[in-house]
Amino acid sequence: MDVLSDQLARARARGAVFSTLRRVAPWGLEFSGLRPLTAHILLEGTGWLSAGEEEPVSLGTGDVVLATGGEPYRIVSEIGADVETITAARRRGSDRHPGPASTVLCGAYVVEGSVGRNLLESLPRFVRIPPDEQTARHRDAISLLAAEADEDETGQQALLDRLLDLNLVYALRSWWQQDRSHAPGWYRALAHEGLARVMQEVHERPEHKWTVEVMAHTAAMSRAAFTATFKKVIGQSPGAYVTQLRMGHAEDLLLRTDAPLASVAAHVGYTNEFAFATAFRRAHGLAPGQWRTTRRQSNSPQDSESW
């Protein structure tokens, strides 16, 4: 598994809320901004993205917008148009009468764990990916997502979740390739031959004994040069990165499996359950078992009211 896949596999959509709405101008949709990450795709027509005092952003057919959590925002046919909440709009359904129409697809993610939080922290409030910055495969994925969102068949939720994941991967790749300064440190490291080798190995085998000396040897660099380069590009020390990666894998196992703590500890590179529990408590303020119980109780599916 490559590094990008490893990161995004643990920040994936789960039980995402979808809507595909046709609107005839004038129209407006209002979003609370409470969701940690929402994707909007303008399948046809034009519109504007408006948020607070910020300058409105013009949207055209095929534009993809990723919106992270924050203050309420609007997608409207024209500045000043009356708006309805996305919850009310979903209940009312699409407009069927003739006129200048736009169709907006929205998908709200459920993002879990530190990997998801780190991903969101690397993004600005809004990311816009116009069609000319999308690959042909991304545009194909958008078409498939739009088609499936209009269906009502067995297994649809799982399929829509995965298609939303696919849109996220394509959108992030396009965004980060436009300007690597926007990308998280681990993504910038992939452009450096030695660091890329280390990142690939560490993500494939987080349980390995990754000392600075071993990582420097893998990168074919001196210990001092490797440490300095790693910290400059990624923004933290090699040891801190490995610990964060292991904690992310541990969170994933605790949330999504019933594996015993000793098994989780071994999987993420700790020789015993006590050493793992100490490291986990230092990072999270709770013992692994307590954290698992608390997070599972608080992770009940969100409903459409939180849009």
Results as ranks from 00 to 15, higher is better:
128 R>V: 13
41 I>M: 09
55 E>D: 08
130 P>M: 07
32 S>I: 03
39 A>L: 10
70 G>C: 10
120 L>A: 10
113 G>E: 13
94 S>T: 11
100 P>M: 05
133 E>L: 15
68 T>P: 09
91 R>E: 12
76 V>Q: 10
128 R>T: 12
88 A>K: 15
129 I>D: 05
121 E>F: 06
37 L>V: 01
88 A>N: 14
131 P>A: 12
110 V>W: 07
61 T>M: 11
84 E>W: 03
55 E>H: 15
117 R>E: 14
98 P>V: 05
67 A>S: 05
77 S>R: 10
85 T>A: 03
130 P>D: 09
27 W>R: 15
128 R>L: 11
30 E>I: 04
77 S>F: 00
113 G>W: 00
89 A>R: 13
66 L>Q: 09
32 S>L: 15
113 G>H: 01
79 I>N: 10
68 T>M: 13
41 I>V: 13
82 D>P: 04
105 L>F: 05
44 E>T: 11
51 A>T: 03
124 P>S: 09
70 G>I: 04
93 G>Q: 08
113 G>T: 13
127 V>A: 02
80 G>S: 09
37 L>T: 00
80 G>W: 01
76 V>D: 06
118 N>G: 15
111 V>K: 01
60 G>F: 02
47 G>M: 03
133 E>W: 14
111 V>C: 04
130 P>W: 11
64 V>F: 02
91 R>D: 11
52 G>W: 14
87 T>V: 12
33 G>I: 05
87 T>A: 15
106 C>S: 14
49 L>Q: 04
112 E>S: 12
69 G>K: 10
89 A>Y: 00
33 G>H: 13
49 L>E: 11
77 S>V: 00
61 T>S: 12
42 L>V: 02
29 L>W: 05
128 R>I: 10
43 L>G: 04
109 Y>I: 00
127 V>F: 02
88 A>F: 09
32 S>V: 00
127 V>S: 01
123 L>N: 08
75 I>S: 01
133 E>C: 09
104 V>H: 09
45 G>I: 05
